[in-house]
Computed example of a mutant assay.
Amino acid sequence: MDPHLLRTFVAVVDQGSFSEAARELGYTQSAVSQHIATLERDVGAVLLHRRPVAPTGVGIRLLEHARPLLLRWDAARADMARMTAAPATRMVIGVTPLAMTAPFGSTLTDLRLTRPHLAVTIRVLGRAALLRDVATAAVDLGLVDGMAAPTDPLHLPDAGPLTTTALSERPLAVALPASHPLAGRTGLSLTDLADARWIDAPDTAIPLAHLRAVSGTDGYRPALCYEGSDVRGLTTLIAADHGLALLPQRALDDQPGIHAVPLNTPRLVHRTEALYQALPDSPAALLASALAADA
């Protein structure tokens, strides 16, 4: 299956329009139509409803394969480029909003003292964007956070042969407005909160889809969706009683109007990991190793 055709198919679905997909990809609209027709002949099924543009049942299933396939394709090209690249003079570090570990600043300082000509850029990214950018070499080192059982790795989508280094595990807490009836509890069980009002903040708090997967229930429905990366913005909404969120305990210290109640059951932690390509003596590998040693 031609990856160029798959990329066109994904673009049409994402844009909801053949003409918008053509504009994004730099093709003519007729070329996009030809790509989709060729892919449908290859698959032997109609993949898109034309009016309005939306994937058919077969198209939805193909989309589930296409996104990870294209990511692996881009990751393979980036990996080959890394292998033949000159020694790094710059490093881009991507961090999810809650993945910045306490020793990060001093450890980065130590690395820059040994490599004074290394130019460093730090980007705050959502979890999906960070994984994609590390895999495709837009980011050299990624610091990603999430929820896991103690000592278990984060469950991340397959993005090629990335090296993962554990950096920290910290307690999780349910963030409640100070006036909430449960704010006085010493601990909470996740299953008791399935029908509560939640804020879905997938790039900041623990995503609600992960809560549903862990609990095996269909609860944890959002009263509000928050697409930002600013933790203070999220806690402001929680304090105003727009919903709950599950966050690392340390992120809730000294947040006005918030009461953090530890999560007792199930046994879950907020885990931070470093993701990078394991090239010998690369700045990313050295920094990840130093961060793990200082954790």
Rank of each mutant, 00 (worst) to 15 (best):
A22G: 08
S168D: 11
L182D: 12
D14Y: 06
A183I: 05
A138M: 08
A54V: 05
A75F: 02
S215Y: 00
R23K: 09
A194E: 13
P171A: 10
D230N: 09
P103F: 05
L190I: 15
L268C: 09
R115D: 14
G59M: 10
A274I: 01
V124M: 10
F18V: 08
S17M: 12
P87K: 07
R50G: 10
V231D: 07
A159P: 01
R90C: 04
L268Y: 08
G57H: 08
F104W: 03
G233T: 07
I199E: 05
G44C: 08
G105K: 11
P153W: 02
T114L: 13
S17C: 11
L193I: 13
P68V: 07
D145P: 09
A135N: 06
R67E: 08
I258P: 04
A196E: 15
R82N: 10
V144R: 01
L246V: 15
E24W: 10
G160Y: 01
P3M: 03
A119H: 14
E40P: 03
R61C: 01
A284M: 00
L291W: 05
G243Q: 11
A278H: 00
M91C: 08
L182S: 13
A31C: 08
V139R: 01
A119L: 12
A285K: 00
D133S: 13
E40G: 09
V214P: 00
T84K: 08
V92T: 14
A128F: 03
V124R: 11
L39H: 05
L6Y: 03
A295R: 14
V124F: 10
L247N: 11
M100L: 15
L141F: 03
P97N: 00
Y220L: 09
R232A: 15
G184Y: 09
V95Q: 11
T56F: 06
S17P: 05
P55D: 05
L188C: 14
D294W: 08
D152P: 03
A293H: 14
T89M: 06
L286R: 06
T235C: 14
A149C: 11
L98F: 08
T204A: 03
S229P: 06
T84S: 11
Q255H: 11
Q249H: 15
P207I: 01
A81S: 10
L244V: 08
Y220H: 14
P171N: 04
L71E: 13
Y276K: 00
D74K: 14
I258K: 13
A209C: 01
V120N: 01
L118A: 04
S30R: 13
L69A: 15
I122N: 05
A31F: 14
R123S: 07
L25T: 09
L234Y: 06
P266L: 09
